[in-house]
Design a protein around this nucleic acid. Structure first.
Length: 354
DNA sequence: TCTGGGGTCCTAGGACCC
DNA sequence: TCTGGGGTCCTAGGACCC
């Protein structure tokens, strides 16, 4: 068996994406704390993050932490446009580009003559010149390492983890810093006194599976050894299309209001499915109650559809089953997702999100 | 300070089939 | 009649990500 070259994977991520687009387009916002989204923080500039403002935080809390923050309404068209321009640059330079989100991509940077440092620097320069945004680049031999390198280098940075240096970089990191280890898994690890990746690396896979479950155990075991075989994958079709609407908790909603909200999310989902040319078989109703507990109810149809009336019919049937719980606890969110998608997914560019 | 909106993948149990 | 194993589909819930 011939020794294989270590892979070279590059992760590129636009810094504070929505907020940076706002600062780019309005010079008056530059150098100032900017929050995108009023009710809930969709994105915060680094100036706002310095005050402790984080995305997904309630707007009231954010304004308490940072009273001088300038709050702007999201401008989706501008973000979609900036995203497309970043991806055009990536696709010019690399054959395989995996879109991880609007502002984030993995690319296969193997087989190119330029050094990782040169590639990263050029990419950052080009995005800054042509799109006017700062991106951070991490390069390493696996996806998770490239992602973590970028995380360490943020904002507006570049970090290459050279082959052979991975474990020295990885082992001092606290477990919750690792991509894929969230609050539940890190809580379980910490309960066993495991605070760093290096400490986790001393346990067997079987021990880790007992502590955090089968899949998560396998994952943390592998990651602690920098084993991550996941390939960079371009152009995967979407697996589900959904929409949801939060309803507040101030006042109980009448059945008519709930049905209207349900109709609205069904309309949105059906419209997006049709513009993407997709159909789906499983209709899933997502509910959140007055105490913020959640439930889902699903129903698989005999045939795939994108017809709003069919989807709405299934959704109403599911909703009827949840009526007693809703009457008791109140409803604060209604969501609807269609899974089991078929149709021409390959042509999808994510544009129907606009 | 009461917590948006869009996704992906895993787990566990039951139904059903061979 | 009872027991066992493997596979697929489906539902409900959970974890994680941006």
């Amino acid at each position: 068996v011939l020794p294989t070259e270590p892979r070279r994977i590059l992760h590129a991520d636009a810094d504070a994406f929505f907020a940076a687009v706002e600062q780019r387009d309005d010079p008056g916002l530059r150098g100032k704390p900017v929050i995108v989204g009023g009710g809930v923080v969709m994105a915060a500039s680094y100036e706002a993050r310095a005050y402790g403002v984080r995305s997904a935080m309630g707007g009231a809390r954010a304004r308490t932490l940072c009273p001088d923050a300038i709050v702007v309404t999201p401008r989706w068209e501008a973000y979609v446009d900036a995203s497309q321009r970043i991806f055009e640059i990536l696709e010019r330079h690399f054959r395989v580009v995996e879109k991880a989100s609007m502002e984030e991509a993995f690319v296969d940077a193997g087989g190119l003559a330029a050094s990782a440092l040169e590639l990263g620097a050029q990419l950052r320069r080009e995005v800054r010149e042509r799109v006017g945004l700062a991106i951070t680049v991490g390069v390493a031999s696996t996806k998770v390492m490239a992602k973590l390198a970028g995380r360490q280098a943020k904002p507006d940075g570049l970090l290459v983890v050279e082959p052979g240096r991975e474990l020295a970089f990885l082992h001092p990191l606290p477990v919750e810093r690792v991509w894929g280890i969230g609050p539940a898994t890190s809580r379980r690890l910490r309960a066993r006194g495991l605070r760093t990746v290096g400490q986790v690396a001393r346990l067997s896979e079987a021990e880790l599976m007992t502590i955090v479950g089968k899949a998560a155990g396998r994952y943390v075991f592998a990651v602690a050894r920098n084993r991550d075989p996941r390939p960079v994958q371009a152009g995967r079709a979407r697996q589900s299309i959904g929409s949801q609407s939060a309803m507040g908790r101030r006042r109980p909603r009448t059945p008519e209001e709930i049905d209207e909200a349900l109709s609205r999310v069904v309309e949105r989902v059906a419209r997006r499915m049709q513009s993407a040319g997709r159909t789906g078989r499983t209709v899933e109703l997502r509910l959140r109650f007055g105490d913020y507990s959640r439930a889902t109810r699903a129903r698989t149809l005999p045939a795939a559809t994108a017809d709003p009336a069919t989807i709405l019919g299934a959704a109403r049937g599911l909703m009827a089953g949840a009526t007693p719980r809703i009457e008791r606890d109140g409803l604060t969110l209604v969501g609807l997702t269609v899974r089991g998608l078929g149709g021409a997914g390959q042509l999808e560019l994510g544009l129907e999100e606009v």
